[in-house]
Design a protein around this nucleic acid. Structure first.
Lengths: 200, 200
DNA sequence: ATATATCGAAACGATACGTTTCGTTTTGGA
DNA sequence: TCCAAAACGAAACGTATCGTTTCGATATAT
C-alpha cells in the first residue's frame, strides 16, 4: 500500500460497450483510496482522479456510492474461503468470526465495510441496498451454519433470528468502533452464548 | 414536527461569556434538522441558518460535529427514565431495550444516534469521543444491571464483556438498519441468551 | 475607562456534488 | 460500407458545505 499505482495508458472507449479495464481501474482506485484515507477521503472525485477515469464513467455504472462500495467489498471477499461445518456450532461461529476479522484487518475491507454502514445512514437508497442485497448475500454461509444446527436438533428454528442478530451485531459493534483487536478475547464466550440451547 | 420555528429576535452578544440562548437555539436547530432530514441533511451551515446563529459561534463551542451530536443526544436522553432492577436480568434487559427503542423511535434520537455512528466512521476524533466519552456514559446503567447479576451470583465476572458486546451490538444492528419495528419480536429471546448462565 | 470575549453577518478559498458538453473511439446492424 | 449508438476521458458547469477570517456591535469584568 502507498505510492501512485496507475500506469496511465489513457484508456479510451473500446466501442459501444463497457470497458473492463476502466471498471477494474475504478475498483482498484476506490480500494486504494479507502485503504489510505478511509471513508473520510472517499469521494467520487478522488476515485476518478486516481483511476484516471471520468466521473461520468463512474456515475454511469454505479448509481450510488454504496453500489461502488459493495462492489469493492465483493471483489475482495471473493478471496476469503469458507471453512467446512464441523458439527460444533459455537466452534464454527468462532472460526467464522476469526476469519472474518482477519479479512477485515488484513485488507481494506474493514474500512470498506465501515464506509458502507456509514453511507447507509445518510442515503436511503444505500440503506435499502444494504438490507436487500448486501446483507442477504453476505450472511448466506452464516445461515447455513445455523440451519445445520437446526438439522442436527441442537437448536429450535424459532430462535434463529435473534441469534443471527446477536451474531451480526457483535461483529458490527467491534468493527464500527475499530476495536477488532480488543474484541478477539470475547469471541469464544460470545459464540457459546449465541449457540447455547434455548434457556428454559 | 415541521415548519419554521425560530422567533428571530436576533440574539446579540451578552458580553464576554457564552450566551445560553444561542446554545439552546443551536441544539434545538440541530435536533430539528436531524428530525426532518436525517444525517444526510445535517450540516453546520444548515444548523447555523436554522438557529439564526453564526457558524463561528458553533465552531467556538463544539470542536467537532460529533460533539454537537452527542450534546443533542444527551439533552434528549435526560428525559428517559431508568427502570429499577427487578432481579431478573433477562427481564431487566428486555425492559431496558424496549425503553431504549421507544426513545429512539419516538424522538429524533434514533437518527441522532445513527448520525453519531456514521460520523465516527469518517472522523477519528469522533470515533475517539464515541469510545471514550459517549459509550461509557451511555452504558452506565447497563453495567449496573450486569453487576447486580454478578452480585446475585447469577453470572461470572469473566463473561461480562462478551455479554455487553452482544447486547450493544444487538441494538446497533437494528437501529443502524432502521429495523427497530421488526426487531422487537426478537428482543426477549436475545436477552435470554445474553443473560443465560455460562454454558459449560 | 478599557481590555476582553462574545455575538451574528458576510465573505473567503478549497473541495465535492451530480450533470452537461465536447471530441474521440469502436461496435454492431442496415 | 456506412452510420446511428454507446462508451470513453477531459473539462467545465452551478450549487453546497467545509472551516476560517474579518467586521462592527454588545456587554462583562477589572
Amino acid at each position: 500500500m502507498g505510492g501512485i499505482d496507475q500506469a496511465r495508458p489513457r484508456r479510451a472507449s473500446i466501442g459501444a460497450r463497457r470497458n473492463p479495464a476502466s471498471e477494474a481501474a475504478i475498483l482498484a482506485a476506490a480500494r486504494a483510496v479507502l485503504a489510505e484515507d478511509g471513508y473520510g477521503g472517499f469521494s467520487i472525485d478522488a476515485v476518478s482522479r486516481r483511476a484516471g477515469a471520468g466521473k461520468p464513467t463512474i456515475y454511469r455504472w454505479w448509481k450510488t456510492r454504496a453500489d461502488l462500495l459493495m462492489d469493492v467489498y465483493a471483489a475482495e471477499k471473493a478471496a476469503m474461503l469458507t471453512q467446512p461445518i464441523t458439527g460444533d456450532l459455537a466452534g464454527d461461529l468462532a472460526i467464522y468470526t476469526g476469519g472474518l476479522w482477519d479479512f477485515w484487518s488484513a485488507t481494506p475491507s474493514g474500512r470498506t465495510f465501515r464506509a458502507l454502514i456509514a453511507e447507509a445512514q445518510s442515503n436511503s437508497e444505500a440503506l435499502e441496498a444494504l438490507r436487500l442485497k448486501f446483507l442477504p448475500e453476505r450472511t448466506r454461509h452464516l445461515r447455513t451454519l445455523f440451519a445445520a444446527a437446526v438439522e442436527r436438533g441442537e437448536l429450535a428454528e424459532a430462535g434463529i433470528a435473534a441469534r443471527l442478530a446477536l451474531f451480526i451485531g457483535f461483529n458490527w459493534y467491534y468493527v464500527l468502533t475499530d476495536r477488532l483487536d480488543e474484541g478477539r478475547a470475547e469471541i469464544a464466550a460470545a459464540m457459546r452464548l449465541i449457540a447455547a440451547p434455548a434457556p428454559r
